[in-house]
Computed example of a mutant assay.
Amino acid sequence: MLVRRLAQLYIGLALYGLGIALQVASRLGNDPWDTLHQGLARQTGLSIGTWIIIAGALVMLLWIPLRQRPGIGTLSNVILVGVFADLFLWLLPDPHGLPLRSGYLVAAILVGGFATGCYIGAGLGPGPRDGLMTGLAARGHSVRIVRTGIEVTVLLLGWALGGTVGVGTLLYALTIGPLAHVFLPLLTVERSPAAA
């Protein structure tokens, strides 16, 4: 069972990196965190993937006062999503024309929803950004308010730094929750009490 969970985790992280790369390459608007990562990349010359890794590590430092405990999935997420995002940004052909760019965007969101179900469903630890949200919510704050506050903050900061905001940003915001709601139950690995 652990082999299945690990395989699902790493497939999910690879696909998540692919989803990020597709959305960034579409140039139609990134999700909030990747707007921030792209803005930081444009200001510093470091790659988007490098900033995904750096931001993930910094967010994990915020877990300490929240007493959140990372799992192997958390640590793998911090490192591998950025690596895969850079790899796929390098491999993907540049989409020319609005139809192909729109196809990249739709594929990005579908892949991202499926990947979210994969890596969370593996049950090996939340991603650093998800753990921050749940840690703050566990302190008595509304999950909706915490999630919205974090997402709006990073989106505005990323936009100010030059990250791409557009129709893809809105489409992602409206669809990622429902997609995760569909894929997470399908991909959650049931664990025996001894494996939990």
Rank of each mutant, 00 (worst) to 15 (best):
W51G: 06
R67F: 01
L46E: 11
W63T: 03
L40R: 09
G56K: 08
L61R: 13
L62I: 00
A57M: 07
R69H: 12
R42A: 15
W33D: 05
P70G: 10
P32N: 06
L46N: 11
A55D: 06
G39I: 00
R67I: 05
S47Y: 04
G56I: 03
D34K: 09
A41T: 08
V59Y: 04
Q43K: 06
W51H: 11
Q43H: 02
I64P: 14
P65S: 00
Q68P: 05
I53A: 14
I48H: 02
P70T: 02
Q38E: 09
I48K: 04
G71C: 08
S47I: 09
G71I: 02
L58T: 01
I54M: 03
A57G: 08
T50E: 11
Q38K: 03
R42F: 07
P65K: 01
V59D: 01
H37G: 13
W51V: 03
G71A: 02
P65Y: 05
T35R: 01
W63K: 10
L61H: 14
R67A: 10
S47V: 14
I72Q: 01
L46H: 14
D31T: 00
L62A: 14
I52G: 00
L40K: 03
L58H: 04
R42G: 15
W63D: 01
P32Y: 01
T35D: 14
L36S: 11
T44S: 15
A57K: 07
Q68D: 00
I52W: 00
W33P: 05
A57L: 13
P70K: 08
I48Y: 00
A57Q: 04
I52K: 12
P65M: 05
L58R: 10
I52H: 04
Q38H: 01
W33V: 12
G71F: 01
P32K: 08
G45R: 10
R42M: 10
P70N: 07
A41E: 01
I48G: 01
M60I: 11
S47K: 10
P65D: 02
I52V: 09
P32A: 13
V59M: 08
V59S: 06
G39W: 00
I52Y: 03
T50H: 13
G71T: 00
G71S: 05
W63G: 01
W51K: 13
R42K: 13
A55V: 12
I54F: 11
W51A: 02
W33F: 14
A55T: 12
A55Y: 07
D34L: 11
